[in-house]
Each structure stands twice: as C-alpha cells, then as structure tokens.
Amino acid sequence: MQSVHSELPSHQAAVTSSSMTNKIDHSQLCQWLKSIAVDRDKQAFTGVFKFFAPKIQRIAQSKLNNEALAAEVLQDTMSNVWRKAHLFDDSKGAATTWVYTIMRNVTFDLLRKMKANKEDNLSDDIWPLAEALNTEDDSFSDHIQSRNLLGVIETLPENQQQVVKGFYFMEMSQEQLAVHLNLPLGTIKSRLRLALGKLKLKLGEHHD
C-alpha cells in the first residue's frame, strides 16, 4: 500500500480539471449544500450524492486500485459533506472544489490509518466470529476478491467488518431468546432442536 502513497498528491489536479466543469449545474449544487446545512434535507443530500458518487468512486478507484477502499473513500467523503455542509462558503469557491478537497483529505486519512494499523499486528480472533455467524455469504466468492483485500479487512474494527458483510445481525441470539422468554439457555436449545426435528419429520412425510 505504501507504493500508492507517493502517487497521491498529484491527483487533486486531475480532479478539478476543466474537462469536468462543462456541464455542471453549480448553482444547483450550492443550493443543495445549503439545504443540507440549514434543513438537514435528505432529498438535497441524495442529489449531491448522485452527482458526486460515481465521480468520486471512479477517481478513488483509479488512485487506490481497490474497489472496497474506493467505496470507503466515497462513504467518508459523503459523510463529511453531510456533517460539514454548513462550512461550505460559495463565495470562496465552487461546490465541486470543496467536495473534492474533502475527498483528498479523506484519502490521506485512510492511507495514514492503514499504515498505522499495519504495525498493530492485530490478531484474527474477531474475524472468525463474524465469519461463523454468516458462512452462507461466502458462496459468492467474489464478495471478497483477494487475500490482499482480506488482509485489509482484518485490520478494520469489528463494526466495519460487519459493514463489509453489508448488514446488521437482526436475528436474536439463543441467549437473547432465553432472556426474553425468561427460560434457561438449555431449555431454549432443546426446544429449538425438538421443533426443528418435528418440522423435518413433517416435511419428510410430505416429500417421500
């Protein structure tokens, strides 16, 4: 990853090049940013998101050469746009320049964080847990495309590992169900086993 590091400072020029400014509705972008700042307007944010997302994704992808990291740059950038919209001042520059500057800073932060994480030498302990809960997911093997990327994921905090998997675990654990029904865990386990056994028996009758 360090090799990418040295190439990055040059990308800002490409980002703000005139070729991109031809058909941009600058006043619309400014209006959206103001609506986000003043009214926390989700529709306006959607507008900004739709405009910038493909561009940021494409630029980040070409600089980082990694889809997942590019997606993280996009998410962090848009999240900063949402939080910091009140700091945007259209008398000082175009909305595009402001957003791409945020993107540049986000990219530097991300690379810095990854460099620091590398030295932490994190163990694999957390990862198999998430993996065990969700083994079916792996049938789509392109979900995580390379060992290299997997290495990066392993250094992420647990909540971000879940992000890579794409969802919250909404299902209850056996422990939660036991607490909810005010029953011992052992009772829950045997009830689940029995109910599943009955179900299979019943289905067997229908199918054979």
């Binding site: 994704q57 993280e72 992000v163 890579v164 969802f167 919250y168």
Partner: peptide, 9 residues
C-alpha cells in the same frame, strides 16, 4: 431490516 451499504456495486 437495516442494511449497511459499503461496496461500490
């Protein structure tokens, strides 16, 4: 359900 969307696709 609530999903967290991360990947570009």
């Amino acid at each position: 359900t609530r999903l967290r969307i991360f990947e570009a696709r």
